[in-house]
Amino acid sequence: MTDPNVPPAISAFVATLPKVELHVHIEGTLTPELRWRLAQKNEIALPYATYEALLASYATMYNHRRELHGDNGLPTFLEAYYGGMEVLRTEDDFYDLAMEYFAKAKEMNVRYTDPFFDPQAHTRRGVPLEAVMRGFERAGRDAKEKYGVVVGWTMCFLRDMPVEDAVATYEAALWAAAQLGSNEYDRPPRLFADIFQRARKDGYKITAHCDVGQKDTHEHVREVATSCVGGMQGADRIDHGLNAADQPELLALVKARGLGLTLCPHAYHRRLPTDWVFGSIKKVWEAGVPFSVASDDPTYMHQQWVTENLGKVMHYCGFAKKDMAKIQRDGVAMSWAPDDVKRAILDELNEFEKGCK
């Protein structure tokens, strides 16, 4: 699904822009084609009799939160998201999932990405942690060699699961940055303060979701920006966090802490007014708070990948080409890429901008 309001010239420009993608859930890139193939390979029954029926299910505007908005008879986003994971069983399944995204990333001129992955969502289904980790780790290595995409994985703790399970998962898998995701309803970041402080001491980067429109979202942003997550300096960045634009003092706190936001515009635009979404992004921009633009869960969000999200931002915010290049530079600065990778991307952006009129 493309946004008919975004001019073709903007779409063409953002397609060629060298990019980083800092907010994409690898399980949220599971295509209907791969899901169907893995279901057949692993002999898993899907609730769809035909591939066409499965494909049609991806076009549904999923009810975002039943606990807030009631039950409309459709699966919530998280139900669809976790339901898709049922086909992922072996190391090769996780490898194939990641490599399919990395091939897409190359097509979109993504130079660096640090995808989120949800080990607890797989181990609670009986999938060995080793299968998850080895599949993704192998794909990360092959992505650089085959596609020229540098990968830095970010492991998520599911905040709607017990904190003790997050601790056990952390101890079993100690090679990724740490993130807090899944359903935030009545699960504030401070519940996980101890494990994040431990991760900080172990030298890991830290971030957390502060979902847009979530209950207590402003307090969640405040907690992530301060000592409740990651020690006295707070997290290293905030995922989503756009509601900080609602409160000038909160936006000022985020800026003072030197935090950037990873924004996924279509994730908000699919359920919130255009003026609020892009007006809030403009407030963040005007306040001088850095942000990157990413896709979140593109296959479950109308096939809106990082290019489509950037096109929306450029069009609805009225940004110039140089502004779009700055967003990528800010993303590079916010990223956890090695310094040599950062320098290479920045050099490429400088050359790219010279050719922009």
Rank of each mutant, 00 (worst) to 15 (best):
M1D: 08
T2F: 11
T2E: 15
P8M: 02
A9E: 15
A9P: 02
V14Y: 05
K19R: 10
K19Y: 01
E21P: 01
L22W: 01
L22E: 01
H23D: 03
H23M: 07
I26Q: 03
T29L: 09
P32G: 04
E33Q: 14
W36E: 08
W36D: 06
W36T: 06
A39D: 04
K41T: 13
I44K: 10
A45Q: 14
P47M: 04
P47A: 08
L55V: 11
S57K: 07
A59S: 14
M61G: 12
H64V: 13
R65M: 11
G73V: 07
P75N: 07
T76L: 04
Y82N: 14
M85N: 12
M85C: 11
R89M: 03
D92F: 00
D92P: 00
A98I: 00
E100F: 03
V110G: 00
P119A: 04
P119S: 06
A121K: 09
H122M: 13
T123M: 07
R124S: 12
V132A: 01
M133E: 09
F136W: 02
E137T: 11
G140S: 00
A143V: 00
E145T: 11
Y147M: 06
G148F: 00
V149F: 02
W153A: 00
T154I: 14
C156Q: 07
E164W: 02
E164S: 15
A166F: 01
T169R: 01
Y170K: 05
A173D: 05
A176W: 03
A177T: 09
Q179T: 12
N183V: 13
E184K: 01
Y185C: 08
Y185N: 12
Y185F: 14
R187P: 01
R190K: 13
L191R: 11
D194P: 07
D194E: 15
R198P: 05
G213R: 07
K215P: 05
K215W: 12
K215I: 14
T217Q: 10
V224C: 10
V224Y: 07
S227N: 13
V229S: 04
G231F: 06
D239C: 06
D239S: 10
H240Q: 08
H240K: 05
L242W: 06
N243D: 15
N243R: 11
Q247R: 12
L250W: 07
L250Q: 05
A252Q: 12
V254L: 04
K255L: 08
A256E: 15
L259W: 05
L259M: 10
L263S: 06
Y268Q: 10
P273D: 15
D275Y: 12
F278I: 08
I281E: 02
I281Q: 02
K282G: 00
W285H: 11
E286A: 08
A287Q: 05
A287P: 03
P290K: 08
S292T: 13
A294M: 05
A294W: 04
Y300D: 08
Q303Y: 15
Q304R: 14
V306R: 04
N309H: 09
L310K: 09
Y316P: 03
C317M: 09
F319L: 15
M324R: 04
K326R: 15
I327K: 06
G331P: 02
G331H: 01
M334P: 01
W336R: 06
W336T: 12
D339R: 12
K342E: 10
K342Y: 09
R343L: 13
I345S: 02
D347M: 07
L349M: 03
L349G: 03
F352H: 09
E353I: 11
K354Q: 13
K354M: 08
G355K: 11
C356H: 02
